[in-house]
Design a protein around this nucleic acid. Structure first.
Length: 484
DNA sequence: AAGAACCTCAACCGCGAGTTC
DNA sequence: CGAACTCGCGGTTGAGGTTCT
């Protein structure tokens, strides 16, 4: 059993260099209790660390890496076993909102839990929420993240996102205010919702979703329909705390189920504005929409639907979500485009809202207030935009990478998806599109929106107008820009 | 009852950062 | 100063179990 020292020290590098013949004598796969006992015994005697020496001294035919992992994830005495408590689940959500996929950092905040555990938790149960079109980040978490980042922003200018993230972790600013946890009247609603959702039998979720709300799949399996209808009531439970109690004034004024798009900021999508989560491709608010055709996704190709339930559209908006996605896509002008994208969750719905408004334009008072709120939302996001700007300059970032894949995924290939989207747009814009295709109407709505100076701030984002429209045109598969 | 589909989670892999020589 | 080594992290895989059809 005992391996030569030279072999031992080479194991990792050998593996790294692809010479598997050298490492094949090291055992892989599940650990046996005997191996566990050996490792535990070794660590008790020698302490943690120097993992490559474990094999040498203990006779384990496992590489140091494997030993470290086994110890860290299963044998450590301080490990907490069993399911996550609701409090832990909420903590994970909050930490993810702040940190993104920084599992190790999250694990450091959750005593007894491992990064692997948290990662698995996120990748499975949270993904389930997304599939269901339910939010991952409750609005209070979004707000909390934003506030803490704004505080940090006020304390020190952030040269780039990385340092910003580090500061968050290393400084007190990262500490999640206790008040948020103590605000259980508020959070309990989430908690009462969250664990249930997290334990939803996966196959009972037959929801697809749109941009604005959860809606049943076009043809949900019959056995799903009952659970769907039961499930549909859940978001309503969140309505009250979502905006009425825990949001600042602009957000208070409407519940997520008001028909006013103007409340749709990132928080409304369950995406904390400016959070690191936004930098992760798997949590871009603009990831490929899921739908009946896309319920099962490869690992990390999340549907990112979580925003939906915080949004209050009365119609599904998959097209807009696709557009939203695409706005991140253009490689050129990427920083600003993504800056745009980071805030665009609100913007694009606002665009549709504007389009819708053009068709109705009956309630001037409401328009004024919504325009006001749109500006608020825009300002709100533009702040985040500034914060995120530098971070998104890295072309290798996941969000950058996601764009191309998203583009390819959502560029209509077969007629069906395009048809669906067209019908969808038509449904949004009403029956007034006799002379324009729905796509054109959507573009014109966007044009109108941009032209009204909703984003005419001196931030450069307005320069993205051509990009946005081009991208939309590309998405729609029509050369709408020609007549533009 | 059997196969398909799906879910969970332990473990592996590649990479990068830090440290040592 | 640079190569070698070690460690830790995040992404991914696949085996095994469960549920559905």
């Amino acid at each position: 059993m005992r391996k030569g020292q030279s072999d031992l020290s080479l194991v990792e590098e050998v593996g790294r260099r692809g010479n598997m013949r050298e490492s094949c004598h090291l055992k892989k796969g599940p650990w046996t209790s005997a191996e566990d006992a050996i490792l535990v015994d070794y660590v008790k005697k020698h302490g943690e660390g120097n993992w490559n020496a474990v094999q040498k001294h203990s006779g384990l035919s496992r590489c140091g890496k494997s030993c470290r992992l086994r110890w860290a994830n299963h044998l450590r005495p301080d490990l907490k076993k069993g399911m996550f408590t609701p409090e832990e689940e909420r903590r994970i959500v909050e930490l993810h909102a702040k940190l993104g996929n920084k599992w190790a950092r999250m694990a450091a905040e959750l005593p007894g839990r491992t990064d692997n555990e948290i990662k698995n938790f996120w990748n499975t149960r949270i993904k389930r929420l997304q599939r269901a079109g339910l939010p991952i980040y409750p609005p209070d978490v979004c707000l909390q993240v934003n506030l803490s980042q704004e505080e940090s922003h006020n304390v020190a200018s952030m040269p780039n996102q990385d340092s910003f993230g580090s500061n968050l972790v290393q400084s007190d600013a990262f500490e999640i205010p206790h008040v948020e946890f103590e605000n259980l009247e508020l959070n309990q609603q989430f908690l009462s919702y969250s664990p249930e959702l997290l334990n939803i039998p996966p196959k009972t979720i037959g929801l697809s979703h749109g941009y604005g709300h959860v809606f049943p799949m076009a043809c949900p399996p019959k056995h799903l329909q009952e659970s769907v209808s039961n499930y549909m009531s859940l978001p309503n439970q969140m309505t009250d705390f979502a905006c009425k109690e825990n949001f600042d004034e602009p957000y208070k004024s409407s519940s997520p189920y008001d028909s006013d798009f103007s409340t749709n900021d990132q928080s409304s999508f369950g995406i904390p504005p400016g959070s690191d989560a936004l930098l992760n491709s798997n949590f871009s608010p603009s990831e490929p929409l899921s739908g009946p055709m896309n319920l099962e996704l490869p690992s990390y190709q999340y549907s990112d639907n979580q925003q939906d339930s915080w949004v209050n559209s009365s119609v599904p908006l998959p097209l807009v979500e696709s557009v939203d996605t695409l706005i991140q896509s253009p490689p050129m002008k990427r920083a600003k485009s993504e800056c745009f994208a980071l805030q665009n969750s609100g913007l694009l719905e606002a665009v549709l809202y504007e389009s819708k408004k053009l068709n109705s334009s009956k309630d001037d008072t409401r328009q004024q207030s919504s325009n006001l709120m749109l500006d608020d939302v825009a300002d709100f996001h533009l702040k985040d935009c500034e914060l995120e700007f530098e971070a998104h300059c890295d072309p290798n970032s996941p969000s950058a990478l996601s764009a191309a894949s998203v583009l390819s995924e959502h560029t209509p290939v077969s007629g069906s998806s395009l048809d669906d989207e067209s019908q969808f747009v038509e449904s949004i814009l009403g029956g007034n599109g006799q002379n324009e295709t729905p796509n054109q109407m959507a573009i014109s709505g966007l044009d109108d929106f941009l032209g009204r100076g909703q984003f005419g701030h001196d931030n450069g984002c307005v320069n993205d107008k051509p990009i946005v429209t081009d991208v939309i045109a590309a998405l729609l598969g029509e050369d709408t820009c020609c007549g533009y």
